[in-house]
Computed example of a mutant assay.
Amino acid sequence: MTEPDDVTETRTAYDIVAEDYAALLRDDLAGSAYDRAMLDLFAERVAGSGGGLVGDLGCGPGRIAGYLAERWMDVVGVDLSPGMVEVARRDHPGLRFEVGSMSALPFRDGELAGALAWYSIIHTPDERQDALFVEFARVTRPGGALLLAFQAGEDVVHLTHAYGHDIDLRTRRQNPERVKRRLADAGFGPAAEFITQPVPPQKSPQAYVLAIRQT
């Protein structure tokens, strides 16, 4: 079966930029209190429900997985890009990272105590997002937490140059209300949401949605 063009586009772009992307964002969390607050809330929610394996879905170079591991979380990262996974394994040698697709995750039904997709749903076209959230629900156990972070909006941004490289990549800003409806349809209940206004160089509001897998 031939994979969709956008999947090939995304993998190729992130393979190209992997090293420079990782270098640019390596210390980004230190300057983002909002990001840290939502990640800490997610970690507390997972721990409070008994703990267990957490999936970083679309993990990139592993910086979020590394942050969660520092908070004593058992975390595994999955990313479409072999280049990103190579960097993640190098920079976080004590953690597990796998090459894989968010649309067909390498986990058993209900295996995860929690999952997060940190700016990684933004590359999935609108018509495939319902199925994406159903897959997130499949691998998350009842009572498990799911944290999403994404740029809020409605437009598609076509990137032709980023992180010092010429690329061909589309990112899709998300409507938070639509995201929450899709999560509900997939079997998640709302827990918290947070939207921040853009701070340069950001060009759009940033949204965080925390949801709980229903029984």
Rank of each mutant, 00 (worst) to 15 (best):
D5Q: 12
D5A: 15
D6V: 01
T8Y: 03
T10M: 07
R11K: 09
T12W: 04
A13E: 05
A13W: 06
D15Q: 01
V17R: 09
Y21W: 04
Y21M: 06
Y21F: 14
A22I: 03
L25G: 01
L25Y: 15
R26V: 11
R26W: 11
D27R: 13
D28R: 14
D28M: 12
A30S: 09
G31W: 13
G31F: 12
G31L: 13
A33P: 13
D35F: 09
M38Y: 02
L39F: 04
L41V: 09
E44W: 05
R45K: 10
V46P: 06
V46Q: 11
A47T: 06
G52V: 03
G58A: 02
C59M: 00
G60Q: 09
G60L: 08
P61L: 01
A65H: 10
Y67W: 10
L68H: 06
L68I: 06
L68T: 06
A69G: 03
R71C: 07
R71L: 13
M73A: 12
L80I: 06
S81C: 10
M84E: 14
M84F: 09
M84I: 14
V87Q: 12
A88Q: 04
A88I: 05
R90Q: 15
R90E: 14
R96H: 06
F97T: 07
F97R: 08
E98S: 11
E98V: 15
S101I: 03
L105D: 01
P106I: 13
D109A: 11
G110H: 05
G110W: 12
E111C: 06
A113C: 13
A113K: 11
L116F: 09
Y119Q: 04
Y119D: 14
S120V: 02
S120G: 01
I121W: 04
I122A: 05
P125D: 01
D126F: 09
D126S: 12
Q129R: 15
Q129G: 02
L132M: 02
L132P: 09
F133Q: 00
E135W: 04
F136V: 11
F136C: 09
F136A: 10
R138Y: 00
V139E: 07
T140F: 03
T140D: 05
P142C: 10
G143W: 04
L146K: 08
L148W: 04
L148H: 06
A152H: 04
A152P: 00
D155T: 12
D155Y: 01
V157Q: 04
V157Y: 09
V157W: 04
H158Q: 14
L159K: 03
T160H: 15
T160M: 05
H161F: 04
H161Q: 13
H165R: 15
R170D: 15
R172C: 03
Q174G: 02
N175Y: 02
E177C: 07
E177L: 14
E177V: 12
R178S: 07
R181H: 03
L183C: 09
A184V: 11
D185A: 15
G187Y: 08
G187F: 05
G187P: 08
G189A: 14
P190K: 10
F194W: 13
F194Q: 10
I195N: 04
T196C: 06
Q197N: 11
Q197P: 06
P200V: 11
Q202S: 12
P205E: 08
P205C: 08
Q206D: 15
V209D: 11
A211D: 01
A211Q: 00
R213V: 06
Q214I: 10
